[in-house]
Simulated scan of single mutants.
Amino acid sequence: MSGIVDRISSAMRRVPTWGVYILYLLPVPWLLYLAQTDGLGREPIKALEHELGEIALQLLIVGLCITPLRQYLGLNLIKFRRTFGVLAFTYVAMHLLVWVVLDMSLLWGQMWADIWKRPYITIGMAGFLALLPLAITSNNWSVRKMGAAAWRKLHKLTYVAVLLGGIHYLWLVKGIQLEPIVYMIVILGLLGLRYKRLLK
């Protein structure tokens, strides 16, 4: 088992991060094409929002998996952690942009009212704000400027952001649906592993 994990880790070290960026951004033009050709159903804007937001949540969860994979399986994907974080923020930003421009048509007064009155939008906006400083400081210059300890402490906001993202998805859907519940269970499980490690 360890031999297989070592080979996978070795192979992944040879994968360039720009390749991961390209791979994970490929769905964007495809989703835009589907939205313009009735490929996303009767409400293409809502569907586009949903797809972008779900990919963002998946990327946050993948980023959260990297440390446990190294600790429990010995699989080293650390070089991609920042990549997944930046990609997650990119998808969250696109998710927000679709809501602001296409869904709400830049009606700022109505948007602010919805942010304050609709809990799932409030939570979603809080998640975006939690990711914003992480995206800004996801570079080597920020690590040097802040110091490694302070930078790591700031980037623990990732845990807050992914939890808020899970709650946002859970509250967004109507009724009880399995998919957002599964996402939330996975998120809580991964956060629980980190809490368990802190207690040791």
Rank of each mutant, 00 (worst) to 15 (best):
E51S: 12
L52F: 15
A88L: 07
I45V: 15
G85L: 03
E43V: 04
G41K: 01
E49A: 00
G39R: 01
I66S: 10
E49Q: 06
G74V: 07
A56R: 06
L75Y: 12
G41N: 02
Y91G: 05
I66F: 11
A47V: 00
A93N: 00
I66Y: 12
A93C: 02
H50K: 13
Y91F: 14
A88W: 05
V62T: 15
L69E: 06
F80W: 11
G63H: 13
Q58C: 13
I61Y: 12
K46D: 12
G63F: 12
L52M: 14
D38T: 01
L57D: 09
G39F: 03
E43P: 00
L57W: 10
E51G: 00
L73N: 06
R42C: 00
R70A: 04
K79A: 13
L77W: 04
I66L: 15
V86A: 02
E54C: 01
L64Y: 11
G39I: 02
T83A: 07
T37A: 03
G39M: 00
R82F: 01
L48M: 08
L60T: 11
I66E: 12
I45Y: 03
I78M: 14
A88E: 06
G41M: 02
T90R: 05
L40Q: 08
L77S: 03
P44L: 04
P68M: 06
Q71C: 08
L48N: 04
